[in-house]
Structures are given as C-alpha cells and as structure tokens.
C-alpha cells in the first residue's frame, strides 16, 4: 500500500469517526446522569434533515449546524418530559423517539432528496497543519472536526476537574443521596438529556452537510445505535470514546481500503463490518462483565422522582 493512500485512509477515518464521536460524547454525558436515551438515531436524523434543509434555503452552513443542534435538543426535550416528568420507561421512550425521528425526518425531507447544497469546506489550521503527515490528518479537516476535538477535551476536563462534572456523576450514581444534599436531580438530568440531543443533532448535520453532503431517508444507517454500544465499550470514559469512534470510523471505510489494495469484495458485504464489529465488541465486553459494572452509572435507566 502506498503512503498517500495510507494517509488518506487515516484522514477519512477521522471524518467518518467524527459524527460517532459527537453522538457518543453526548450520550455519555446523558448516561452519566443516569438516563439511557435510545433515541440517538432519531435525534441524529432530525438534525441531519434540519441542517440540510436550512443550508439548502439560506446557504449558510453555520446556521445549518445551529438549527440542527436546536432541533436535536427539541427532540431530546420531548424525551425528557416523558421519562423525567411522566416516569415512563426509558428504553421504550427512546425507541419511540427513534421511530418518530426517522418517520418525521423522512417526511419533511422527502422533497429534498437528491438536492445539492454548499457543503462545509475544510479549513487548514495555520502552523499545525504544516506538521508532516499528522498535520494533514488532524488539522486539515473542517470546523466540525475541530469542534469535536474541543468537545472531547471539554468533556474530559468536565468530568475530571469540574464541580459540575462531580454533580452530574453523583446524580447518576445515587440520585437519592444527591437529592438529600440539595442537588436538583431532575434539572441536571434534563440538561444532560438536552446536551445529548444537541450533540446528536450536530452529528446528524455533519453527515448531511459535510460528510455526504446529501439528504437521504435514514441516512444515519445505525450510527446512533453504534454510538450507544460505543459508550458501553468505552466504559463511560471520554478518552476511550474517541478511540472507539475512530476505530468504527475505520471499519466503516474499509471498502476504500479494500479498493485501494485491489480486492474486489462487494461493498454491500463490507458495509456489514461496522455492525458486525459492534457485536464482536459487545461479546468481548462480556468477558469482564463485573469490571464493566464498576464503571456503569448505578442508576442508569432507572426512573427517579421526588418522594414525599
């Protein structure tokens, strides 16, 4: 394999991993507060379609991402109201959010299939992008990739260093105790869910505005679900989420590698790889199930409401 191809593959790996990284980081924050939101796929799709439509009409890429974040957040609020204030089952509600999101996005996006938009350009960072090899791979990307780097660092520090991170974690570990010492469990969970929604919206918009850049029905093709597995794989740690996201990014573009190496394998068969890899990783995780339990937020998925 020649060197240029190798560099290009790594470059594409970062791009492909970016939406996964964004959703998974958002979902990790949400799960750390004790809420399992299986609606990632639905929120991503709504973000993707919103971003695409906005850029199609107004031709302002930034506006596309902002509105995608807002719509993702609105979807998350719908979820939050039902699980936090009506105490509904989080698994079922998350599924409902995905079904609703894929239906609604297909509906409002139906007239936009096949349309073209101005996509997000790459932006070489001065000095950094001049570093040989790595400079091109990491710092000749687009703004959203840099945003995902920043979110990674921010979330990492938030949990390691900040008081807010501590509050969020304590609510996920033991909401009753957190409530007793005066923390507002539902408020924090609400905010965490909203954050997850905004991140999913941006991730979806990245697919429709930067990555493809096209809108097609169900274009996220399971990335929201893979991100959910990724959070478990990363045992709720940001530094492992970024690793996992790029690993899956690589698995998703392996058909390019195969083509580059001259293998003639059907792209439909290679498309199976990320999903199969997810299953393999879930199997591997089971080998140390007890260790995993140590990292899992104790109250994850359990409804909590104030008792009097």
């Amino acid at each position: 394999m020649d060197f240029d191809l190798f560099v290009n593959i790594l470059y594409a790996t970062i791009r492909t991993g970016t939406p996964l990284l964004l959703v998974a980081l958002g979902e990790m924050v949400c799960e750390k507060s004790g809420v399992l939101n299986l609606g990632q796929e639905g929120m991503m799709l709504m973000g993707a379609v919103t971003g695409f439509i906005v850029v199609n009409h107004f031709d302002i890429v930034a506006l596309g991402f902002v509105s995608a974040a807002i719509v993702g957040m609105l979807m998350a609020i719908l979820f939050a109201v039902i699980v936090l204030f009506l105490n509904a089952n989080q698994v079922a509600t998350g599924l409902a959010l995905t079904i609703f999101g894929s239906g609604l996005s297909a509906f409002i996006g139906a007239d936009y299939e096949g349309k073209i938009i101005t996509s997000l350009d790459s932006l070489a960072l001065p000095i950094l992008s001049d570093i040989p090899v790595i400079g091109h791979i990491l710092f000749n990307q687009d703004l959203v990739v840099y945003f995902s780097f920043a979110m990674f660092v921010g979330i990492y520090l938030f949990f390691k260093k900040s008081r807010g991170g501590l509050i969020l974690r304590s609510i996920g570990e033991n909401p009753d105790a957190a409530n007793v010492i005066g923390l507002s469990v539902l408020k924090v969970r609400f905010l965490a869910i909203c954050f997850g929604g905004a991140m999913a919206g941006i991730a979806g918009a990245y697919l429709s505005i930067a990555y493809t850049p096209l809108w097609t029905e169900n274009m996220t093709s399971g990335r929201g679900w893979i991100a959910l597995a990724l959070v478990v794989f990363a045992s709720w740690r940001a530094e492992r989420i970024i690793l996992g996201a790029y690993l899956f990014g690589f698995a998703s573009i392996i058909h390019l590698v195969a083509q580059g190496l001259g293998f003639a394998i059907s792209s439909n068969l290679l498309a199976i790889l990320p999903y199969a890899a997810t299953i393999v990783i879930l199997i591997m995780l089971s080998a140390n199930k007890n260790k995993l339990k140590l990292y899992e937020p104790v109250s994850l998925g359990k409804p909590w409401f104030k008792k009097h």
Binding site: L78, I82, T93, A96, F100, G103, L104, A106, F107, A110
Partner: peptide, 13 residues
Amino acid sequence: NAITGVFQGLLLF
C-alpha cells in the same frame, strides 16, 4: 409516503 412513519411515532409516544 413517509407520513406513515410520523403517525407510527406519534402513536407510540
């Protein structure tokens, strides 16, 4: 046609 999906989602919600 995707309006079907909207109705399905609403129903479940």
